[in-house]
Amino acid sequence: MDEMTVNVGTAAVRVDGLSRRYGTTRALDEVDLTLERGITGLLGPNGAGKTTLLSVLATVSEPDAGRVSVFGLDPREGAQRAEIRRRLGYLPQELGYHRHFTVAGFLDYVAILKEITDRGRRAEEVARVLAAIGLERRARTRIRALSGGMRQRLGIAQALLGRPDLLILDEPTAGLDPEQRLRFRELLSGLAGDPVIVLSTHQADDIAAICPTVVVLLQGQVRFAGTPAELAATAAGRVWAADDRDTCAHLSWRGGDNRWRHIGDAPPAGAELVAPTVEDGYLMLSHAAGVR
């Protein structure tokens, strides 16, 4: 493998015609996708296939059909799959922890699994990621004594070990408090080496804040791929704010200013047109796709 050289250019990850079924449920339906360097946000409702797509990219599960190429490497080939895993950081959606391990001990163990066998380098890596997620003072704490948010940060830390070229994070901000979410955004934005980061989340404001690219996955299919601004623009001219609820609108909800926000084809009486957000664009797409 020392002879192997990979291209990690603009199109680092390519997905062609990817399909995956679970019994009669079609989780992914001929997905075509190209991921570039930088952060890509993956938006979609529950059951849209986000986790399945990420697990395929992480070489955890195999597709029923289609091809995946990560840095030009084919995960179906054993040696190339191992090479992908050497440059991969992965945070699954539901991650348990070895609760009797200490924080530093767990990270050290994961570092060995990532083939960082040199003790000195491993210690440096553990210290680096602990500092990055703000858990350096908890290094000796057993995982069972950590709060849910701290465990989530620990999960992010293990994904960052080894400075991966491909970072796959499945709902990494779940359970984080607002301050930690901000810190997490800063952390991702400041990652050195400009890796490929795929981020699945339900937080549209996270997407808007840090993702230059956003992909909306609905019912196993890619319904949108572009910038957050482009996603927001899909709802342009269809978002209104009013004092009363409009029963004819596609979607209505009360905002923080105690006014009703409507997404629809026609404005309700007395409503004023407002600038759409990423969330509006996503909701518009979801409604158009018939997702409830």
Partner: peptide, 24 residues
């Protein structure tokens, strides 16, 4: 597409426009 050169893998020849980095 990304290209791969070396003994262990075959690479598409038309994907050579990106920067190359050594394998881990």
């Amino acid at each position: 597409g990304p290209a791969l050169r070396g003994a262990a893998a075959a690479a598409p020849a038309d994907h050579g426009d990106e920067a190359r980095i050594p394998a881990r």
